[in-house]
Computed example of a mutant assay.
Amino acid sequence: MSDPAAVLVAVLDDLRSESDELDQLVGELKPAGWSAPTPAPGWSIAHQIAHLAWTDAGSLLAVTDAGAFAAEIDKALASPHGFVDDGAEAGAALPPAELLARWREGRERLQQALREAPPGTRFPWYGPPMSAASMASARLMETWAHGQDVADALGAVRAPTARLRHIVRIGVRARDYAFSVHGLTPPAEPFRVELTAPDGELWADGPKDAAQRVSGPAHDFCLLVTQRAHRADLAVRAEGPDADRWLDIAQAFAGPAGPGREPKEA
């Protein structure tokens, strides 16, 4: 698919589907259920949804008012380690029904703003400026990742879908960023990444003859780059020292490297 307008529509449709799937997990929760702890230390289910609502609001601001968003960047720079947690904490303090309504309304407003964005527009963000399609992909990645935290808290198992391809693309493109965040020089040569999609299709990126290679299930790769599972618990494999190092530090999100997850007990 090469038409930018068609690409944007497809990504936004997938974002809506991803959000709807998470909504099904939390939409009927009793008030007490929102307090259930998730794998993220100190974050309940309410914190997870509050974070998504908060980030949707920030994304909408970036799309509609770049000047006002610049002030948000200043806040983030002033408190790089507390900025995100503060936003989640404020939202989690709301009554669950109000928080749920805020998330639903905010994500729909963002959907509409991105669908109406002039072609070729790039919007400011905490990292490099993003196109509408890139912003939608980033929102899908975060929705899926925080949705995994919610699913884990509830003991729910989500079936992997073709929407993982958006997360794979971000994770692969963020290779050099992951090295840089850790103070490392990114490898000069491209890697070959071969991942098995949920339907068995092979998703491949990079030269076929690359010496540095990564392979495995796409679902496991997504869990790795969103830091929702420890590498030791996943079937993602590396060939070559640089590829091996990447799998230790990979991240698909902007900002400081997170602590990740501890390996499961044997």
Rank of each mutant, 00 (worst) to 15 (best):
V84H: 10
P129F: 02
S137L: 06
P128K: 09
D86H: 11
H81F: 15
L100A: 10
L99F: 08
K75P: 00
R122C: 08
D149V: 02
W125R: 07
F83K: 07
A97Y: 09
M141Q: 09
A71M: 12
R109D: 15
Q112G: 10
P95A: 11
A138S: 13
T121L: 07
W125N: 06
P129L: 01
A78Y: 06
M130A: 07
L77D: 11
T64D: 08
L140F: 03
L99M: 02
A132F: 11
A97D: 13
F69V: 08
Q112E: 13
G87Y: 10
R104F: 03
P95Q: 09
V63A: 03
H81V: 14
S79A: 14
I73T: 13
A138W: 05
G120A: 07
E72F: 09
Q148A: 07
V63R: 00
D74Q: 14
M135P: 02
P95D: 08
T143I: 03
L140E: 06
A62S: 13
E142C: 04
A117M: 08
R122K: 13
H146I: 02
L110H: 03
A101P: 09
E89R: 15
A76E: 03
R102T: 09
D74C: 09
Y126L: 15
G91T: 03
R104I: 10
F69C: 05
D85T: 08
P128W: 07
L110N: 06
G87D: 03
Q148H: 13
V63N: 04
Q111T: 11
A132Y: 07
P119Q: 07
M135K: 05
D149A: 04
P95T: 02
R107M: 02
A133K: 07
R104P: 10
A66I: 12
A117G: 08
A70N: 14
P129C: 02
G82W: 12
G120Q: 05
G87T: 00
A92W: 03
G127L: 06
E89V: 10
R139G: 07
R107L: 01
G87R: 01
V63F: 00
P118W: 12
G67Q: 12
V84W: 09
E142W: 03
